[in-house]
């Protein structure tokens, strides 16, 4: 079927199989930051935004992006680098494989929650698994990043 979408700010019209996953579609369109960690909707690695809402691209029905905007890490590289610098400062990226999905979720959280407490942050990010870090360094990075953003606001 034919879909029209805006991918990372660029209009795209493409004939796609109805049952292709959004994840595969995105990778085929050059968004290689998008990773598949489980295929059962439990790891968060494949997180992208549809109209700014973080969703799992491994299961989001591809035809549903017709007429909507899709954003991957490639579309927010500057912001990702800004937050990512805090992750790097803590060693929190480790193997890095979960970083794109995690960062997309953190940036969505930043837009959605105002001054979230640690508990809220953990609840918001609970769907982002990481096997390397044990999460503490990620929280340190988030806190420092949000504090800095808060100061500059």
């Amino acid at each position: 079927m034919l879909i029209t979408t805006v991918l990372n700010g660029k209009s795209l019209r493409q004939e796609v199989p109805a049952d292709k996953t959004l994840l595969d579609f995105l990778r085929e369109n050059g968004c290689l930051s998008v990773k598949r960690g489980c295929g059962t909707e439990n790891c968060g690695l494949c997180t992208v935004w549809v109209d700014g809402t973080p969703v799992l691209s491994c299961s989001y029905p591809l035809p549903r992006i017709d007429g909507h905007e899709v954003t991957t890490l490639e579309g927010v590289r500057e912001e990702a680098a800004a937050f990512g610098a805090y992750m790097a400062g803590e060693g929190a990226e480790q193997c890095g494989y979960c970083s794109p999905g995690f960062i997309m979720t953190v940036l969505a959280m930043e837009r959605e929650l105002r001054n979230p407490a640690e508990e809220e942050i953990n609840a918001y990010l609970a769907g982002c698994l990481c096997r390397c870090t044990g999460y503490s360094s990620q929280m340190r990075a988030i806190r420092k990043y949000l504090e800095k953003r808060h100061e500059t606001d």
Binding site: R77, G96, S99
Partner: peptide, 13 residues
């Protein structure tokens, strides 16, 4: 910092 940090956090292939 890890030498590859920048590449990893910006989702480079």
């Amino acid at each position: 910092r890890k030498l590859d940090a920048q590449a990893l956090v910006t989702g480079m292939p």
